[in-house]
Design a protein around this nucleic acid. Sequence first.
DNA 1: TTGCTACAAATAAAAATTATTAATTAGGAG
DNA 2: CTCCTAATTAATAATTTTTATTTGTAGCAA
Lengths: 136, 136
Amino acid sequence: MQNINIELLKSYGLKATPQRIDILNTIEKLGHANIDEIYEIVKKSNPTISLATVYKNITALVEKALLKEVALNNFKSKYEIIKDRHSHLICKVCGKVTDVELNNEILLLSEQLSNNNNFNYKDIELNIYGICSSCA
Amino acid sequence: MQNINIELLKSYGLKATPQRIDILNTIEKLGHANIDEIYEIVKKSNPTISLATVYKNITALVEKALLKEVALNNFKSKYEIIKDRHSHLICKVCGKVTDVELNNEILLLSEQLSNNNNFNYKDIELNIYGICSSCA
DNA sequence: TTGCTACAAATAAAAATTATTAATTAGGAG
DNA sequence: CTCCTAATTAATAATTTTTATTTGTAGCAA
């Protein structure tokens, strides 16, 4: 098994179909991708794949908590492989998403914030909107 | 002019139509609302309004920076009147959004994070996902 | 082999959003 | 106050996005 994503899929109880492997590889390569980006790229190696399959698999992978949706203002949701907590720098011009390490300080402050408001904290999402260096 | 939102609209160079006033009043009352919620409520006081009108006005108000989109994972985007920086507690079960005061500490940490990454910081969005007290 | 299951492709259907057009209205000029 | 004009709206229509259904196929188990 050369491809780590095959193991990943199986460890989550999912069959490692070529389509799913392609989808995961694509997201992994891009870091973040929305449905259309994934579809366009996967089509190259798998020309008969249908858009519905991408939707269905993305949904399945999100349900299995293998992928995470990143809802964005003004852009279509992107998806990323779940890994360490991080924050997103989102360019208001081109929509590019860049990950940055999320420090524990922010994490703790967020948990405090939740506790103070009688809210059962599960997950944090810190999105920073601005202009990226290439668009500046 | 009893209604503050009329002045608000004019100060942004928009005509204060009953539809817009209704939409703003609704969002103000609810704090956060998605397109459908707004439509359903505005329809009561304005039964002939069309859904397309709500879409168009929401888009216009967002463009004029009078409203802010709040993109949510798994739920349709909600809209809020732009005011002081705050964070959102988002219930994963019912989708309810609650505002909480955002402390300066988090704000500063986010700006630092941006600067460290050569990113021109504009705006922060801290969304905390979890379970609200009524769903717990 | 035969039957069952999981899966995908292709389609169809539904839901959400945006565009068009003709009629109406808000707000300013006189 | 009344009239005029540009902005706005309702009512579609059209498009886009997302989800569901149908059909076929591959692989496994008995």
